[in-house]
Design a protein around this nucleic acid. Structure first.
Lengths: 196, 196
DNA sequence: TAGCCCATGTAATTGGTTACATGATTGA
DNA sequence: TCAATCATGTAACCAATTACATGGGCTA
């Protein structure tokens, strides 16, 4: 199933402001990359579909087309969400979400079979993983500060902060798990009674 | 990229014991389903490939084919990992893992745009999510108890417990996040000064 | 005028699930 | 003899990424 989540990701992004396909790509890469990604191969075909269904419309001259001084590029196509699009989005938002937070965790597969590999490989895996999540915690803290400063009054801010908080909870827990795992892995593989 | 993780999942599973495609499916469904899944559509073709490459071999009459009294089913094909297969697995285990713990988290996408939807939808989402992870914590505790009892002496046990511990850390953190999120969502959307 | 970013789009491929077809064996 | 389970396999489909083709505009 999974029923076309890209459609709603795009519709949602267009509630923030009207965007072109190129803008959308940047929005996903820079704005919400830590929990959502889209590629051009998804975005452009979906935009075409959504337009055909009337869920988005050409925004070239739509009211509220804002700052940009005319279309800098002749081929630039900016889309805005329509009322029908807002309805579709709202319906999707009210439907239950699948809680499948990460099928196929490669690190766990490797750890599960780690005894079949090089003795130190597991510890290296855990160390890399820890570094990754420690890094995420740092960038997340920076992002939070920036968000709070730049969008203090934005009505969406509380929801944006919730998504950040999710990442912080998970990465914090995973750093703790890495530390515990490192201790386990450092312990003697088979508990030998005592003296040599 | 992602380079064919199914191959290694299958090779790894076959280090536990020789299995048929059907057995492998059960192994993934029942043994490691919380962090790895495979479907028949993957398993059978991969087995054929691995056999052609000499990484697994027919185990019908291989040494250590164990308990089963002959092939109960005429068509039942049991595979065992070969030395070449163990090498390939060990090489993969020593390579760094991608830390992509869950791209595309649907609940965060919905939360990010939640202001565009029904007012209570977000809270429902969070409540469902909390229930899901509370459930995972419970089954995980049960699994841990069973593992410790049934396989106390198994050399792989410490690694199996590490994967369980990962799940417990994550689900624990997510339950906490849900509780925090519920409080945020219950708060008045816009902080109104005071009296009506 | 070279190199970079802006911008749109598509084709090929991969990874994976679902649903189905087929049939044997077991036990109520 | 009926249903459940064991067992293998494939075709169709879906989601998604990657890599490429194409070309305009901006600036050093």
């Amino acid at each position: 199933m999974a029923e076309n989540r890209t459609r709603y990701a795009v519709l949602g992004a267009l509630t923030v402001e009207p965007m072109s396909g190129y803008d959308l790509k940047r929005f996903f890469d820079q704005g919400v990359s830590f929990f959502w990604a889209e590629s051009y191969g998804q975005i452009y075909p979906i935009l075409k579909q959504l337009k055909a269904e009337g869920l988005v419309a050409d925004a070239a001259d739509a009211p509220g087309a804002s700052a940009r001084v005319g279309p800098a590029h002749p081929r630039r196509a900016v889309y805005a969400i329509t009322p029908a699009g807002r309805d579709a989005l709202a319906r999707w938002l009210s439907a239950p979400a699948e809680p499948q937070a990460g099928r196929r965790l490669e690190i766990l597969l490797k750890l599960f079979f780690a005894r079949q590999g090089e003795p130190d490989a597991a510890a290296r895996l855990v160390a890399d993983f820890r570094a990754h999540h420690a890094g995420l915690l740092a960038t997340s803290a920076a992002t939070e500060a920036r968000l709070r400063a730049d969008h203090a009054a934005h009505s969406d801010l509380p929801f944006w902060l919730l998504t950040l908080s999710y990442g912080q909870h998970v990465s914090g827990a995973l750093v703790a798990w890495c530390d515990a795992a490192a201790r386990t892995l450092a312990a003697p593989p088979a508990p030998v009674p005592s003296g040599v």
